[in-house]
Design a protein around this nucleic acid. Structure first.
Lengths: 231, 231
DNA sequence: CCCGTTCGCATAACGATGTCATGAATCCGG
DNA sequence: CCGGATTCATGACATCGTTATGCGAACGGG
């Protein structure tokens, strides 16, 4: 029987009310360790100890260290999805697109170590991305694809293939975030400055008028606070 | 006394003709292991064994596993520098810029695991980038800065700050390469297709005319083979 | 209500890892 | 030619991921 379904049954019947589930506890502790102390602190013994269990629980639930990382990655994808879904659709689709980029970057910076595992190719505890994980990552592109379609429909983008335009947005924002996390973007050309320029350049490259692009990107900057407060 | 200078002296006097230097041997073996078998295969004992020495030599020369990784990173930077230097200056600066991007990607794909450590934030064997390493990485930007200046001087780019334009090129190409290495860019929008579109979009975003940008990028694709053969 | 079965998890061990103390062998300056 | 310095092999230590073993609690049929 699959451990997951086993756990499902256990959760439904909830044998111990005081126990919020060792499985979720392990994932939470692991995420906290990774976020606060970096990848080196993510050891099976330490995770188990801080979660108040032994290392064996980690193996019955996740089959090993890489399984636990996979679970964190899954949760990272749903969190990214939530951040992107918080960006709605207004009458300025280019501003919406820029706001998608801002939300993406915001999520990446908030969970930097996890982001490096999800998209940066950082091999953590022997874990490597499976095809389903990658598919979950590509799924986040759909927000940008839909937005690119609206930009084209509104006559702002001249690009014909919204998937390609969305990919370019993704690639550029991902590149900025990873270089920023690597500490490469500093003082004269810091990450904030590069990001603003990147957004405007992307919109122009997709076919928008320079003045309109600048205005929409600036407007999305204003609207950012609003979305953040809504979280 | 610094091990590096120690080794320098030893190399100059070459005490044993048959020994090509244990230090460089260790780096070569490590680079080969990393490139052929991935980060998990990079263990101190294995590197030492395949280099025909014991693990202690690794500590006298590099102070530990992270020191060896740092040495590989340094060599990775000079190799990248060589790839970028091979791109000369022609009368079409936009094509030169596109060719710089192609050379950058070429080098990254040829040494994918090393690239992930240099720019992707992949924490390998407890190594983390020092500020001098990052400075070496930023140094590679100078090629693109000089090229962006030429693009502006030729009236192709309208951007005022060549450093900012060059950064955008770097960010975008880096983003594409990391997503490509992560396996995220597949069939309908594979890495090649995205890369070509990215190059054109970047030039347009920097201010070039769409038709001229398309022509220059295509021309750089033709010229790529020539540069590769020159290596 | 009770006992056999099953399941979750703790204990302890194994191989492999990075690192370092020790000591032998070698090199170099005087 | 010698003595301090240096390189490197041996072996040990703590810790890592992983797993075999076993105990106690929860479940289900009688």
């Amino acid at each position: 029987m699959n451990p997951a379904t086993r756990r499902e049954k256990l959760f439904d019947m909830s044998p111990r009310r005081s126990d919020p589930g060792i499985r979720t506890g392990l994932v939470d502790v692991a995420a906290r360790l990774l976020s606060e102390h970096g990848p080196r602190a993510l050891s099976a013994r330490r995770v188990a100890a801080e979660a108040g269990s032994s290392t064996m629980a980690l193996y019955t639930h996740f089959g090993g260290m890489s399984g636990l990382v996979r679970e964190m990655v899954r949760e990272g994808f749903v969190r990214l999805e939530q951040h992107l879904s918080a960006v709605g659709a207004t009458d300025d689709p280019v501003a919406d697109m820029a706001l998608l980029g801002r939300a993406y970057r915001r999520n990446a910076l908030a969970n930097s170590h996890l982001y490096a595992v999800m998209f940066g190719g950082s091999s953590l505890a022997g874990f490597s991305l499976g095809e389903e994980d990658r598919q979950a990552g590509r799924y986040t592109l759909l927000h940008a694809v839909e937005c690119a379609s609206r930009c084209s429909a509104a006559g702002r983008f001249s690009a014909i293939i919204p998937e390609l335009t969305a990919s370019q947005m993704w690639i550029a924002v991902h590149g900025l975030v990873t270089l920023e996390l690597g500490g490469y973007l500093i003082d004269p050309l810091d990450a904030d400055r590069c990001f603003e320029a990147q957004l405007v350049g992307l919109m122009i490259g997709a076919g928008d008028e320079p003045e309109a692009a600048t205005r929409s990107v600036a407007a999305s900057g204003q609207r950012l606070e609003h979305v953040c407060r809504a979280e």
